[in-house]
């Protein structure tokens, strides 16, 4: 081995060592989320499980909505998880929203929701949300799945991850004990979450013919719904992407072939 190769070897080893350290560091800190077979995370044929997403909307409405807003989702968008137009009108009408100023008096009155309305928040403003929740504003859920590493699996893990900590785990919690109003959850950064366990078996009554409302089933359903809420154009994106990639594969092949032909003509090789 001559000097050059030794130098290159050292450089390569240094590079590999640093990048493997990088991996070790990321794996050591956070627990791994249980892997979910999300149909929307497939590359080909990606789709939201419509039934699960509709059940998930029911869970959001009955279990989450009292604290968490969903500001970027309007009723009309619910078409995306398979609700029909009459169903959307009925859903919208079952919510009360602030209406428009009256043309005669200027008074603003509440009215039943319309498909074009956004899902109204329970709280009039962030201050009201904070006042009802120990000073912490429950985050808006519209983009939650995209705002956390791990996406829908993270959400599923949080919702199913509540349990008593082991003595060993408690050592890693800042201060060595769960603070008042906090709950242990190994998937949350810092392992303490303010939100009490939001789901329990049988909390929601699903309509006839649906699977039993276990915590796991509900966590799967509401995570599916919120994944859709965060990325409603995912199905369109991935199906269009398949066509684009196949087209570009063929085009790239043809262009390579024509480049080689031209090269032979003008360069001789």
């Amino acid at each position: 081995m001559n000097n050059k190769n030794i130098l290159a070897g050292i450089a390569l080893i240094a590079g590999v060592a640093v990048s493997s350290m990088a991996f070790a560091a990321t794996n050591g800190e956070k627990p791994v989320h249980p892997k979910q077979g999300w149909p929307h995370e497939k590359v080909i044929g990606a789709h939201y499980d419509r039934q699960a997403a509709q059940r998930g909307f029911q869970i959001y409405r009955e279990a989450c909505h009292s604290c968490h807003s969903l500001n970027f989702v309007s009723f009309r968008q619910l078409e995306g998880i398979g609700f029909s137009e009459p169903e959307i009108k009925a859903i919208a009408a079952s919510f009360t929203v602030m209406g428009e100023p009256d043309m005669e008096t200027g008074d603003v009155k509440e009215r039943p929701g319309q498909p074009f309305d956004y899902i109204p928040s329970t709280f009039a403003n962030p201050e009201a949300a904070a006042a009802s929740n120990n000073g912490a504003i429950p985050p808006d859920l519209s983009l939650m799945v995209k705002a956390r590493p791990g996406g829908a699996s993270y959400l599923y893990s949080i919702l199913t991850g509540y349990r008593e900590p082991t003595a060993e785990e408690l050592k890693h919690v800042p201060g060595g004990k769960i603070p008042d109003g906090g709950h242990f959850n190994p998937y949350k950064a810092g392992h303490v979450i303010a939100m009490p366990p939001p789901l329990m078996d049988g909390l929601i009554t699903y309509t006839e013919g649906q699977p039993p409302a276990t915590v796991e089933q509900m966590a799967y359903d509401v995570s599916t719904f919120l994944a859709w809420a965060a990325e409603p154009k995912l199905e369109q994106r991935k199906s269009m992407g398949f066509v684009v990639v196949v087209f570009l594969l063929i085009l790239t092949g043809l262009l390579f072939w024509s480049y080689k032909r031209i090269s032979k003509q003008v360069l001789g090789h």
């Binding site: 590359v43 994106r237 991935k238 269009m240 992407g241 398949f242 684009v244 990639v245 570009l248 594969l249 085009l251 790239t252 262009l255 390579f256 024509s258 480049y259 031209i262 090269s263 003008v266 360069l267």
Partner: peptide
């Protein structure tokens, strides 16, 4: 050698190759 047709053909191939990787990213891992 003149830019055209040699480099126009070569760059067209490279553009297509870049777009292939780019759009794979845009559509599947944006």
């Amino acid at each position: 050698i003149d830019f055209h047709p040699y480099h126009t053909a070569k760059d067209a191939f490279m553009v297509s190759l870049l777009l292939l990787v780019f759009f794979a990213m845009v559509f599947f891992a944006p």
